[in-house]
């Protein structure tokens, strides 16, 4: 209960903080941070809760992005529908791909996800070039109509929309990680999959569902990304950005609720600020990642949580439980 209250409080504080930052930081930066945090949330869940590290996240981002992009380019002008199409496209692909990939153990899972990312990149760049226009991509700037309630064609509207979606995704993962039996079984898959089978659980189903949920959330981020940038090209699935979601998750703290947001803030911040002075800004992210991992392998939020738990434990000794 305490953890539940804490996370609700946390979400509320983040909501206020991000709203206040709106006046201090560029809207474009904040929007990108929020979209990236949605993108990284699935990856963080896979790493932190199931112990599955995926270097194939750009592929899952791309399916959502292209789902939305193809709808807007060929079929309609409503951005809400485009996002929905992106999510559905991503969901279907993840359900199929997940059936094969989650059968692999962690190292092979990681490598095959990356291989899948390479395949996806070439599908969008070469195989479907007639429809996707490869590296040039689909330009959608004149193909989106203003939307009712929140206008997704305006910068304020897309920020607000991404923000609301992020909050909903946070709440969903909060329930999944802290309140559901499914979340607990995910943790047990990471801890000891065989033991979970002893209890009568078919662990394949657990991993498959987690894979579908996590990567459909990445697809959702991809669809919003397309609407935000008004374009999508094959580079979104580029294997060179395969480590971004993993780096963000680890930097912030894999498996934590706010890790992806903190990680995205740092990652995008470093990318935007440092790249003005150093062309190879990734070097700094690399060093930061090493330092954070050496400090406890739990990322910033994970380390902070551990520190606070220890502090609380020092103040209030645990009962021995001796009968």
């Amino acid at each position: 209960m305490k953890r539940f209250v804490n996370s609700w409080t946390g979400i509320f504080i983040v909501f206020i903080l991000l709203y206040l930052l709106k006046g201090l930081l560029p809207m474009a930066f904040l929007t990108e941070v929020v979209i990236f945090s949605i993108y990284a949330m699935g990856c963080s869940f896979l790493i932190g809760r199931l112990g599955l590290t995926s270097f194939g996240q750009p592929a899952f981002l791309a399916f959502g992005a292209y789902g939305a992009g193809i709808y807007l380019y060929y079929f309609g002008t409503n951005s809400y529908v485009a996002i929905l199409v992106g999510v559905l496209a991503s969901l279907v692909i993840n359900m199929i791909v997940g059936t094969f990939l989650v059968r692999l153990n962690s190292s092979y899972f990681t490598l095959c996800n990356q291989a899948f990312c390479v395949v996806t990149f070439f599908i969008f760049q070469k195989a479907l070039v007639k429809w996707t226009f490869g590296d040039n991509g689909l330009l959608l700037i004149s193909r989106m109509d203003p939307t009712p309630v929140i206008d997704l064609t305006s910068s304020k509207g897309i920020y607000l929309f991404s923000f609301i979606v992020a909050i909903l995704v946070w709440l969903f993962f909060n329930y999944l990680m802290k309140k559901s039996v499914f979340g607990a079984t995910c943790l047990c898959v990471k801890d000891n999959e065989e033991k979970l089978r002893f209890l009568g659980y078919k662990t394949f189903n657990i991993k498959w569902l987690a894979f579908v949920i996590a990567n459909t959330v990445a697809g959702l981020a991809g669809a919003i990304y397309t609407v935000y940038f008004c374009m999508v090209n094959a580079n979104i699935a580029s294997v060179s950005s395969a480590s971004e979601a993993v780096a963000i998750s680890m930097l912030g703290g894999a498996g934590t609720l706010f890790g992806p947001l903190v990680g995205s803030f740092l990652f995008i911040g470093l990318k935007d600020i440092v790249s003005q002075f150093i062309s190879h800004w990734e070097v700094l992210v690399g060093f930061l990642l090493i330092i954070v991992m050496l400090a406890g392998e739990k990322g910033i939020v994970g380390s902070l949580e551990t520190y606070l738990e220890k502090r609380k434990a020092r103040k209030k000794p645990v009962a021995t439980g001796v009968v």
């Binding site: 065989e194 089978r197 002893f198 209890l199 009568g200 659980y201 078919k202 662990t203």
Partner: peptide, 11 residues
Amino acid sequence: RSYEVARMGLK
């Protein structure tokens, strides 16, 4: 499978 055996009542 082991989970099927567990569900059958052999733990």
